[in-house]
């Protein structure tokens, strides 16, 4: 049981890192950005390519994340930004196209076989009489640290406040004369960086395969919906909550664990709709 809880927390941490960028893009620009999955998957493959050269997990992570930034910028600048304000489905189709293209690119360069990445530290800790890998604890701590850092960013910096304001009323921000797109680009890149970090630190636990971008962007979508679209604190709780759902379902029916996430998402949507009507 405790093992499952720890497992749930680990997945929750990853889900949070991966979802935050997706949630911000959705909340501010009303754009469902499937290309977020591209960033996630590509950064893991880049990481695998860089790691043998530098032989240092953290350094390879930093390098891969830095390499992914220009790609993230290009996606934002040339695919997402031209579609700001257009009907939701344009961006959906366009970013889905990017996800397809990068998935094929990955298959072409690296092949379709899953790739294993070894865990950087095999140390285990004793928590409540259970062996708990230090590496997973680090993941959880990273996610919580990111949560607090983002909170500071959104509460204390002008850029953060512009985003919070735009989540409420993006027209209002424009009518003050603030060029919100500059700030959107900034948080878009922050979101991509977090997804890359999430993808990379999760990769030793699972394995890398070309379709992982699809899987995770759908999970990020669920986290965003359950967290209350545009509610960034909600995304944190929802990520850990859904992480628990995955872990607990995995105890009983491992095959259905990820599907459960979408069952919960559907249930949340229905309940919320009931509430809206009453």
């Amino acid at each position: 049981m405790i093992e499952s809880i720890m497992f749930g927390l680990t997945i929750g941490a990853i889900l949070y890192l991966v979802s935050i960028g997706f949630a911000i893009t959705f909340g501010t620009m009303r754009i469902i950005n499937f290309a977020h999955g591209s960033i996630y998957a590509l950064s893991v493959y880049l990481f695998m390519m860089v790691l043998p050269y530098v032989q240092n997990f953290v350094l390879a992570l930093v390098i891969s994340v830095v390499l992914i930034i220009p790609l993230s910028y290009l996606i934002e600048r040339y695919i997402i930004r031209p579609l700001y304000g257009d009907a939701v489905h344009y961006a959906l189709v366009a970013t889905y196209g990017v996800l397809f293209a990068t998935t094929d690119l990955i298959k072409w360069i690296w092949g379709t076989n899953p790739k294993l990445i070894s865990v950087p530290t095999k140390v285990t800790l004793q928590i409540f009489d259970v062996d708990f890998p230090l590496y997973r604890l680090i993941i959880i701590i990273v996610a919580i640290a990111v949560f607090f850092a983002l909170n500071l960013f959104f509460r204390k910096t002008i850029a953060g406040k512009v985003i919070v304001a735009a989540l409420d009323d993006s027209t209002g921000v424009r009518c003050l004369g603030i060029d919100q797109y500059r700030y959107f680009s900034l948080v878009f890149i922050i979101g991509s960086v977090l997804a890359a970090v999430g993808g990379i630190i999760y990769s030793p636990i699972v394995s890398a395969e070309p379709y992982m971008g699809f899987k995770f962007v759908l999970l990020a979508f669920a986290v965003t919906i359950v967290g209350g679209m545009g509610n960034l604190t909600g995304a944190f709780y929802s990520a850990f909550g859904l992480g628990m759902v995955i872990a607990m379902t995995a105890r009983v029916w491992p095959r259905l664990s990820e599907m459960m996430v979408f069952v919960v998402m559907a249930a949340v949507l229905l309940i919320r709709k009931e509430k809206d009507f009453s």
């Binding site: 406040k161 919070v164 304001a165 409420d168 009323d169 209002g172 921000v173």
Partner: peptide, 8 residues
């Protein structure tokens, strides 16, 4: 719509 930045 009298929408302020309600989160701020």
């Amino acid at each position: 719509d009298k929408k302020v930045f309600s989160g701020l």
